[in-house]
Structure formats: structure tokens, C-alpha cells
Amino acid sequence: MASVFSGAPPQGGPGYSFSQTRIATSSGIREHSFYPYTDNGGSTLGVSGADFTILAGDTRSTSGYNINTRYAPKLFKIGGEGPDGTGARIVLSVVGFAADGDALKERLDTIVKMYKYQHGKPMSVAACAQRLSHILYNKRFFPYYVHAILGGLDEEGRGALYSYDPVGSYEREQCRAAGAAASLIMPFLDNQVNFKNQYIPGSGVGHALEQRVPEPLPRKDVEELVKDAFTSAVERHIEVGDGLQMMIITKEGIQETFSELKKD
């Protein structure tokens, strides 16, 4: 009975004054509601040939179900002069979080330019590829949320194509699709560029069947493959569409083309 008249404020309830109130210890760290990433959709792909590399990307930029713009390029010339990137021999394509993509492009472009000014010769694609990996890996714990593809010509003049994950793992490949429709385009490329699941007719029965040997494709064929890949992706992925930007790197330089895709 004594406790009823103790005069003390009830446990856990309000006290007589604010200064008297025990501040409850918070249960762990309060949740941050700001998320520093977003996905701007779109897709890119690259194919390397005997003496050329083609990179392509659609030009749609999205946020959620909204289309931000129908023309936001995902392909960038690296190490060129002036706003048009004249004299560049390397192309970077980035897809994922566009703000990180732009920041990454800017850094790589500056580095390749500085290399040229300091060494008096253009940076090789292999060196640039490794440097890009280091840039991405350096931000391992707050990554650039992008899938990058780097294209150019190697020391022997053959097409060179490097693909990356957001934290800098990289690999030289014949072809790679990245971004929103990567899962739609990559199997098509496996089949058409690397001849996966294609066998020589009549070469055997069951496991004895001989795999068709992949060989570098001619440029015209690759351009058609790229266009087919994108028109198909547009049909089945809502974040892909509007326009197709292509960059073809040959020993003559970089040729840029633009063609329309469906805008729906």
C-alpha cells in the first residue's frame, strides 16, 4: 500500500520535470533513410572483332516508371581532345547509376589525358583497362554502382574488350552485355558470337557432336547483331528504348552512329 503514495512518478511514464526524465537508451543505431544509389536503367553491349571493337548502348534514362529523357548517352570517348573527344582511341560504356557513371567517366578521362601529357604517348588499352579496375577497387567500400565495359584496339591492332563489375573485377572478352537487359542479350550473344550450343551437323550423335568453332565476325555482321539484340531487348524490357548509340573503334579512329529505337 505504501508504494501507491510514494509520490514517485510511475515507471516509464512522464516525470515531474523534463530534466528528471530518464532518456531511454535507443535500441541500436537509428536507421538512415537516405539511400545514395538509384538505377537509371538502360543496357549496353560490346563485341570485339579481328580489327575493330563495337560498343553500343540505348539512350533512355529512367527513374522508376518515369522516363527522364530519351537521349542520355552511355558511351564516352576517353582521352580525346575538347568536348567532342577528337583523337580518342578508347571508349567507355557505363550502365547502372548514372551519376556514378558520369563521375567514373570523368576520372578515367582525366587520367588518360594526364598520361598522354606526362609520357608523350597515348595510353594503351591494356593499361587503361587495369587503371579502371584500380579506380573501381579503390572505392570498394562505397562503390561506383555501374557495370563498365571498355573497348579499343590492343597493341597488335586487334579488337580489345574489357568488362567490369562495380568493385573492379575485370576480364578481357569477345563480347559482353550489361545493364537492365543483360540477361536478355547475353545468351543471344553467347550463341551468335561464341557459337555456344551450335554443333557441326552430322559430326556425330549425342555427346560425340562437335562444337562449332568460334571465329571473329566481320564488322557488318556484328553491327546487325547489335541492332537485333537491342530491338529485341526493347520489346521485352521497359527500361530499354528510345535510341541506339554505337561507337565503332578501328585503326582509323572512332566512328559514332545513332539510330532510333521504339519509344514506347
Binding site: 538509384t38 518515369n66 529523357t69 537521349y71 551519376a99
Partner: peptide
């Protein structure tokens, strides 16, 4: 987020819809 884009027409917030 620092995301940038350019277009002949633009609208923010509800205007985007």
C-alpha cells in the same frame, strides 16, 4: 543524388507524372 539529364521538356516532382 547528383543524377543529371537534359531534355527539351523537363518537370520535377508531381510534374514528372
Amino acid at each position: 543524388l547528383g543524377t543529371t539529364f537534359s531534355s527539351p521538356t523537363l518537370a520535377t516532382g508531381f510534374g514528372a507524372h
